[in-house]
Amino acid sequence: MRLEHLQSINKARENRIAAVTVTALDGGASSLYLDGEAVDEVMVPAVQTALRTGKSAIVEIDDRPLFINVYLPPPRIVVIGAVHISQALAGMATLAGFDLSIIDPRSAFATPERFGQTALFADWPEDVLKDAPLDAYTALVAVTHDPKIDDFPLISALAADCFYVGTLGSRKTHARRVERLSKAGLDEAAIARIRAPIGLDIRASSPAEIAVSILAEIIQTLRTRDVMGGRSV
C-alpha cells in the first residue's frame, strides 16, 4: 500500500468520510476512492456495493482478482443528556470502540467531575450539532426526558439518517412525543425508526444495566442493517 493512500484513508476516517481501496491481488497497482469522488467506470458497481453494505470482499473484474476493502467512519454515539445512564454508557461505549460525546445544556449535569475524559458539551444540541452534524454512522441516544432538549436532536437524527435513534420514555410519554413530531412534519415511517423505550429488553434496572441494554441495541442495529440505511451512494 502506498503511504499517500494510507494517509488519505486515515484522514478520511478522521473527517468521517467513507473510503474504499482496491488492491490487485496479482501484484498490480492499487487504487483508492473516497465517498463522493469520481470512481473508474468499471469499478462503480463494486465500490457502490462496498459503500452500501460496509462489507469488504474479493471481486473478479476483467479476469483479475481484486480485493475491495471498505473503511467506514468509526461508529459514533451522541448522547443527549448528561445523566446517570450516560456516565455508565460513556465508559462502556469507549471500550466497545465507539466514539462517544455527550450534549446537555444543563451545566449542573454536564460537569467534567461527573464525566472525566468524555467529550462533553454544556450547550444546547441546536448549537453543538451545527458544528458537528449527525450522519449515517452515528447513533443518537436522547435521555434527558425533556422535550425542550430531546426533540430537536431526535428530528435531526432522523433527517440525517442516523443508523440508530433511541430515546427514554414510557409508552405514554412516547405517544405524546409521536404527536409532537407529527406536528413538526415528520412522517410515520420516520417516527417509527425511533427506538422507544430505549434498549434491548433484558430487564435492565440500574443505570449501568440500562447502559448495557442501550449499547447492545446500538450494536445489534449497526450489525444487522445496511450501514448506509439504504440511502443511495
Binding site: L3, L6, Q7, I9, N10, R13, P74, R76, A90, A93, T94, L95, G97, F98, D99, L100, S101, Q117, T118, A119, F121, V128, D131, A132
Partner: peptide, 17 residues
Amino acid sequence: MILGQAFVPDPLTVAEQ
C-alpha cells in the same frame, strides 16, 4: 468537535506513525 478517543488505537493510525 473533539470526540471521545477510542480505547484501542486503530492499526492503520499506528502504521502511519
